[in-house]
Amino acid sequence: MLYLQTFLGFCITIIASIIAAWLFRVLLVRLVGHSTAKFIRTAPLTASFGMLVICMYILCAIFAPLIAPYGEAEILGGGFEPWSSTHLLGTDNLGRDVFTRLIYGARNTVGIAFLITALAFFVGTLLGLYAALKGGIIDQITSRLVDVLMAIPSLIFSLLMLTIFGTSVLSLVIVIAAIDSTRVFRIARAVALTIVHLDYIEAAKLRGERTRYLITREILPNALAPLAAEFGLRFCFVFLMISALSFLGLGLQPPTADWGSMVRDNADLISFGDITPLIPAGAIALLTIAVNFVVDWFLHKASGLKD
């Protein structure tokens, strides 16, 4: 009986998300301008589901104080209280409301992950394109430096760096962004290498264009599709990295709510058959899947594959 119920619940969730995704796409097509609408109409249901989920996360992050019933670090009662009407998802080990912290977690984790990814892309892309364009000794120096950094396992390297520089949000952002920019560098350089040999780059060079124009106007627009796809993937990795670091105690520091440390805080409940600690993990998983749905669609579009 219980299995049947679970199965039914599962089916209803799937159907509900398909309908939600479809409705969301219709809504988007109505809202945006004509040319964008034409583009969005080509989105498969998976991609519109992904966009819906991402939008919900963003709304959560922006309006966290309005949605959340309590304060982020407010202690409201005993530890590990069960789910009830006052505490929707119960309380954690210190008696803070789990639902509230889940919402604030979206703000902290997603916001910081976005900041880190953006920074990593800015630095990595710029250096990668520059190295590909200049070639020769500049390319050799930057590429070998990146190779050295990439040779060290990223989690261990960031643990090391964070122990040295302390665990403030700023050092967290800089350390992870620096490590991730090496990966972005490799991709940007590889993409740009196929572009810099094309005739229009040669024409621009012969015109006497400066490096800045070459990078921003000639190379970057043509490298954008693979880079944007990589941005989605990289965002997920950063996200998982922050959560992993928080779980290990070196990421975001208490009492700031973030999903990684929430799993750790409530991990004990698992032994009692309570699924509360899995909910932040689920939130991470859902966002990762959603982002990848959108990225897949984008890659498909950019590669010009026909179905």
Binding site: D199, Y200, A203, R217, N222
Partner: peptide
């Protein structure tokens, strides 16, 4: 150039 396809930046 010979190949106008590669001689013009496709994004401009």
């Amino acid at each position: 150039y010979q190949m106008a396809d590669t001689a013009l930046n496709p994004k401009l």
